[in-house]
C-alpha cells in the first residue's frame, strides 16, 4: 500500500463563489481553489458540480479540461448525480497522473454508477449503504459484497472500488464510531481500498474543535488501514496529520522537512 491519498473537497457548488463561477464559466475562482488545495498537498481534486441536470455534460467537460490544463493533468474525482456529466468529463480526462474517480455509487439506487465506472475504466467511490445509514458492520459488509460482485462482473478490478464505510456524525452517534473504525480494519484486512468523507464526523461542533476531531479520527482510521479520504487540504492540521501518519506507518521515508513536501 502506498501513501495516503487526499482528495480535496473545496471545488463544490455548495460554495456560492464556486457556484457562481460554474454558472458563468469563470475560471478564476475555480483555479484559485484548485491551486490552494494542490499547494497544500492534495493528490486528487473533487469536482462537485451539483445535480446539473441540464448543463452538466458541458460543464463537467469544461471543468475537467480547465483543471487538467492548468495543473499538469491533476487527477480528478467527478462528483455529480448526473451520470452523463461524469461520462462526458471522463471523455476529455487525461489519465497521465491517475485514473478518474466516479463519486459515487452505493448498493441501492446509485449502484449503476459502478457500471459507469466499469465502462470508463475509472475508480468508483462505493458507499457501503443502501437506503440510509447502515445499522451495523454486517450490513456494511453485505453492501460491500453486493457492490464488489456488481463491479467485478462488469470488469472492474477490486482495487478500483474504494469502499466508504460512511463516517457518522459524532454528536448523536458517538457509540457508532469504534464500529466504523473496525469496519475500516476489515476492509484493509481483505486488501480493499477505502475512502471516507471525513468532515462529517465533526458536524455541528464549534469551528475550533472540528480540525482536532477530524485529524484524530483520520489518524485512527489510517492506523486501521484507511487508504484515502475526502478532506479540506487547506486545513493545516489535517495535512500535518496525514503526513505524520504516513511516516509512522512507513509509507514514506522521513526527512526533517517532511511537512514541507
Amino acid at each position: 500500500m502506498g501513501k495516503f491519498i487526499t482528495i480535496g473537497e473545496r471545488i463544490h457548488c455548495i460554495s456560492p463563489a464556486i457556484r457562481a463561477a460554474m454558472e458563468s464559466k469563470d475560471p478564476e475562482p475555480i483555479l484559485k481553489r484548485a491551486k490552494e488545495q494542490l499547494d497544500a498537498g492534495a493528490v486528487y481534486l473533487d469536482v462537485n458540480i451539483g445535480p446539473a441536470e441540464k448543463t452538466g455534460e458541458d460543464l463537467m467537460k469544461w471543468a475537467v479540461t480547465l483543471l487538467q490544463e492548468h495543473f499538469d493533468n491533476v487527477p480528478l474525482c467527478l462528483d455529480t448525480a448526473n451520470k452523463k456529466a461524469i461520462a462526458a468529463g471522463i471523455s476529455v480526462y487525461n489519465r497521465a497522473k491517475g485514473k478518474p474517480i466516479v463519486n459515487s455509487a452505493d448498493a441501492g439506487d446509485r449502484i449503476s454508477y459502478l457500471a459507469l465506472a466499469a465502462e470508463n475504466d475509472a475508480i468508483c467511490i462505493s458507499l457501503c449503504s443502501k437506503s440510509g445509514v447502515p445499522a451495523d458492520n454486517d450490513e456494511r459488509m453485505a453492501y460491500c459484497q453486493e457492490m464488489l460482485e456488481y463491479g467485478t462482473e462488469r470488469g472492474m478490478e477490486p482495487e478500483d472500488l474504494w469502499f466508504d464505510p460512511l463516517c457518522l456524525v459524532i454528536k448523536g452517534m458517538q457509540d457508532k464510531q469504534a464500529e466504523m473504525l473496525e469496519f475500516v480494519r476489515q476492509l484493509s484486512d481483505m486488501g480493499f481500498n477505502s475512502v471516507c468523507g471525513l468532515s462529517n464526523v465533526s458536524n455541528g461542533m464549534p469551528k475550533t474543535v472540528r480540525p482536532i476531531m477530524d485529524s484524530v479520527m483520520l489518524a485512527m482510521a489510517m492506523q486501521c488501514g484507511l487508504t484515502s479520504a475526502i478532506v479540506n487540504p487547506c486545513d493545516l492540521r489535517i495535512m500535518e496529520t496525514v503526513k505524520s501518519a504516513d511516516i509512522i506507518l512507513n509509507k514514506t521515508l522521513y526527512a526533517d522537512s517532511y511537512l514541507e513536501l
Binding site: L253, Y254, A255, D256, S257
Partner: peptide, 14 residues
C-alpha cells in the same frame, strides 16, 4: 543516513 540523504535532496530541490 537515509533520512539525511532525503533531507539534503529536499533542501537542494527547495
Amino acid at each position: 543516513d537515509i533520512n539525511l540523504a532525503k533531507q539534503l535532496n529536499v533542501l537542494v530541490s527547495q
